[in-house]
Amino acid sequence: MTADDVLSVLALMRRAEVGVWIGGGWGIDALLGEQTREHRDLDLMHPEDREDDVVRALNGVGFVESLNWRPVRFVVAASDGREIDLHPLTFAADGSALQASLDAERPFVYPATCFVTGMIGDTSVPCLSAEQQVYFHQGYEPTDRDRHDMAQLRRAFGIATHGSVR
């Protein structure tokens, strides 16, 4: 998934009038304002009540569902191998949100302050905060990509992550 691909997907979501936020590796690179590694996919958070609009827009440009782990997440893929990992969020009146998890008693919490902006190239993009990125990278054995991403957050923001002694 290239930077141009990400910006095209974001433009598609704007045309569909659906707010989305970038998470995962592209979200971290957006916070950093530079691409630090290649990305196999794009993680997008979207309002659960707009899921039909998201799917319809992505279907219109050739993405089809390839994995269904609803209500936690689902994946759409294009024939050329590009993938988008979609995470449905249920928003509260205060701007915070919840995402279902595999443990129904412990949903993922998104404070209103975690919805920030970053940069991909010269374009401002909606993404998740560094603190929210760290929150999602806990509780499992990190991959090499995860270690790389967390090292970038430590370097840029001086925050504690797994793999750090802070």
Rank of each mutant, 00 (worst) to 15 (best):
A130E: 03
P126A: 00
V75C: 08
A57P: 12
F136T: 06
I22N: 01
L67M: 09
N68Y: 04
E34P: 10
R56S: 07
T36S: 10
Y135W: 11
I22R: 02
D94H: 02
F91E: 00
A100S: 14
A112F: 01
L102M: 14
C127W: 03
V54G: 10
S124D: 10
A78P: 14
S124V: 15
A97F: 04
V75L: 05
S101K: 08
R37P: 04
R56N: 14
Q99L: 13
G81A: 08
S101C: 05
V54T: 15
G33I: 11
E48R: 10
F74R: 12
T90C: 02
T36G: 11
D49K: 02
G33P: 14
E105Y: 12
V125R: 03
E83L: 11
D49C: 04
P111I: 02
L32C: 07
P126L: 05
D29L: 03
H137L: 11
H39N: 07
A112P: 09
Q138T: 14
F91N: 00
T123V: 14
L98T: 04
A130W: 06
V75Q: 09
D85E: 03
D29T: 10
H137G: 06
F63Y: 14
E38W: 10
G60H: 09
D41V: 06
G24L: 04
P142T: 06
D41G: 02
A78W: 12
E131C: 09
I120V: 13
N68R: 09
V18W: 04
E105T: 15
V134W: 08
D80Y: 12
Q132V: 11
N68M: 09
C127P: 10
Q133S: 10
V109M: 06
L44C: 08
G33D: 05
P71G: 04
L128F: 09
R40Y: 02
R50V: 08
V61D: 09
W21Q: 05
G19E: 13
W69G: 15
S101H: 11
V75M: 06
D103A: 08
V54N: 04
Y110E: 01
I22A: 05
A130H: 03
E51P: 11
T90F: 05
F108E: 11
D43I: 04
F91S: 01
M119H: 13
D52V: 13
M45C: 12
C114S: 10
D41C: 03
H46T: 07
G139T: 12
V55G: 13
R56T: 15
A92V: 07
E105I: 14
L128D: 07
L86T: 07
G60Q: 01
P71D: 01
G23L: 02
D41W: 07
S66D: 07
D103H: 10
E38Q: 05
T117N: 05
E34R: 15
G33F: 06
A77L: 03
F74I: 11
G27T: 10
V61L: 11
Q132N: 08
Q133G: 06
G27F: 05
A57W: 07
M45Y: 11
E51S: 13
G118M: 01
R82G: 05
L42P: 12
I22G: 01
I84F: 02
E38D: 08
T113D: 07
